[in-house]
Amino acid sequence: MSDLRGAERMSYAAPAYLPENLPRAAFSGVLTRRVCAFCLDFILVSLFSAAIFFALAFVTLGLSLLLLPPIFPFVAFFYNGLTVSGPNMATPGMKAMDLEMRTTDGGRVSFLIAAAHAVMFYVSTMFMPIFLVALVTEGRRCLHDILAGVVVTRRPR
């Protein structure tokens, strides 16, 4: 057994990028912008999915048509994971709407967290009342934001 009385203890600071620590301007119009960003991203993911679907159907001479219908979730998973964890910290739709996503400590979102956030978002679209959480939380955070430990804000100017 080691004696911990003289050892330094690690202190964990509270995450600094939480809504209560950010200016209110960082969250003005975020919900409306997120809806518009989702619409843009949904169109882009649908176009990518359709392109991959038809390309694979053509390459395999139609033999893969039974395997291709679940392609949209795979495309959405990688689309969100790669774009949010990238240098812009946003999907193209979020970037167009002047939004960015960070972890609660202010850092970049990793690929796995961004992809898991997208999965939780698409699952929560099946239960629309879950989105009402965003109306009562600080910073208008959705339930999937809280579970993933991310904050969506306006881009700093």
Rank of each mutant, 00 (worst) to 15 (best):
R157S: 12
K95I: 08
T153Q: 05
D3G: 07
G149S: 11
S49R: 07
A90T: 01
P70V: 10
D41S: 10
G81S: 13
A96S: 02
S46Y: 03
V133I: 07
L47P: 09
P73W: 05
R102F: 13
M97A: 06
A14M: 04
G93I: 11
L68N: 06
T104C: 12
G86F: 11
R108I: 13
F38N: 06
T137I: 05
T125L: 09
F42D: 11
G86C: 13
L82H: 11
V150K: 06
F58K: 03
L112H: 15
R33S: 06
H117Y: 03
L44K: 11
V35E: 03
S11F: 11
A37S: 05
L112A: 08
P87D: 08
R5M: 13
S49T: 08
M126G: 04
L82P: 14
V123W: 00
V84H: 02
A26C: 03
A57P: 01
V30A: 02
V30E: 02
V150C: 10
L99E: 03
G149F: 06
R155P: 01
F58R: 00
K95W: 10
P92H: 12
L63P: 09
N80F: 12
R108D: 07
L143T: 00
R34V: 01
F27K: 09
Y79P: 09
A7S: 14
F127A: 11
A114Q: 02
P70F: 04
N21I: 09
R24E: 14
A134L: 08
R141P: 05
N80S: 15
V151G: 06
S124Q: 04
T137K: 03
E138S: 11
P70D: 09
F77A: 10
A51G: 09
F77V: 10
L65K: 06
E138R: 12
R108A: 14
A134S: 08
Y122C: 01
A115H: 00
L67S: 12
A14D: 00
P70E: 02
L4A: 14
C39T: 11
V59I: 10
F77N: 13
L143G: 00
E20Y: 09
P23T: 01
V119K: 00
F127W: 15
V152S: 00
A96F: 02
G149D: 15
C142E: 00
A13P: 01
S64N: 03
V59F: 02
L132V: 05
H144Q: 02
V59E: 04
S85T: 14
L99I: 07
F53G: 04
